[in-house]
């Protein structure tokens, strides 16, 4: 695992990607994300923001350029090795939560611990409970996703993304499915938890206002990234 506050967690160089018959979605994208750094990517719908996140997570292989996650180039890894790297180094927060509907909130949070760590069942439970309490859902650990509100579901998703202490959080429109008040609260929680755990954050959003609260804002336009403004890392 990458040491907090030093080194590059994610490095994209000359990244390119396109769907067959649909032209290039990404071309020549370069990005370095330092440990603990929080970066927002804004852009129009269909500009390739989410695709960038998927490539960064190794969910989809890039067809040009390189993705280095925690110093390891994904291109040289097979599917299983990419998965192993992802489950240790990355936590993902999706726009539509993607909780496992057949598991309770607590079990959803325990899942990455079961997949990525050697912890015993009791330790997993203990750590998941603590993480769930940290997002304010300690009292609802036994609820299934469909018994939770949208905001609560996203909070469980945040807890799940952070529980195994990854080096990098990838968040794809985490407030996109929430009303503005809930979205604001969830966003604040996400930033707070990221800060508390010290991991890096790469966040995709439509909202310039939300993006402005991060260290750096990049705009995705015509498949390329433009650095809009660099901000001080400690706000």
């Amino acid at each position: 695992m990458v040491q907090r506050g030093s080194g590059v967690v994610l490095s994209l160089a000359g990244l390119g990607f396109g769907y067959p018959g649909e032209g290039r979605v990404l071309q020549g994208v370069d990005l370095d994300l330092a440990a603990g750094e929080r970066v927002a990517i804004v852009g129009e719908s269909g500009s390739g923001k989410s695709t960038l996140l998927h490539l960064a997570a190794g969910l989809e292989p890039a067809d040009a350029g390189t993705v280095r996650l925690a110093g390891q180039a994904l291109a040289g890894l097979d599917e299983a090795a990419r998965t192993r790297l992802r489950r240790v180094q990355v936590g993902i927060v999706f726009q539509s939560f993607h909780l496992i509907p057949t598991l309770t909130a607590l079990e959803n949070v325990m899942l990455p611990l079961e997949l990525a760590t050697d912890l015993g069942a009791a330790q997993r439970r203990e750590r998941a409970r603590a993480q769930l309490a940290a997002v304010g859902l300690g009292a609802k650990e036994g609820r299934e996703p469909e018994q939770l509100s949208g905001g609560e579901q996203q909070r469980v998703a945040i807890a799940r993304a952070l529980v195994h202490r990854p080096a990098l959080i990838l968040a794809d429109e985490p407030t996109g499915n929430l009303d503005s008040r809930t979205g604001e609260a969830v966003f604040a929680l996400l930033l707070e938890q990221v800060r508390a755990t010290g991991c890096a954050l790469l966040l995709v959003t439509h909202s310039d206002a939300l993006a402005a609260r991060l260290d750096r804002v990049l705009r995705m336009q015509d498949g390329q990234l433009q650095d809009l403004a660099a901000r001080a890392s400690a706000r």
Partner: peptide, 16 residues
């Protein structure tokens, strides 16, 4: 399929 994809994104191996 969506659930399986979620599990895979969380780190479940293809063999899993």
């Amino acid at each position: 399929a969506r659930e399986f994809a979620t599990l895979r994104s969380l780190g479940l191996l293809p063999g899993g």
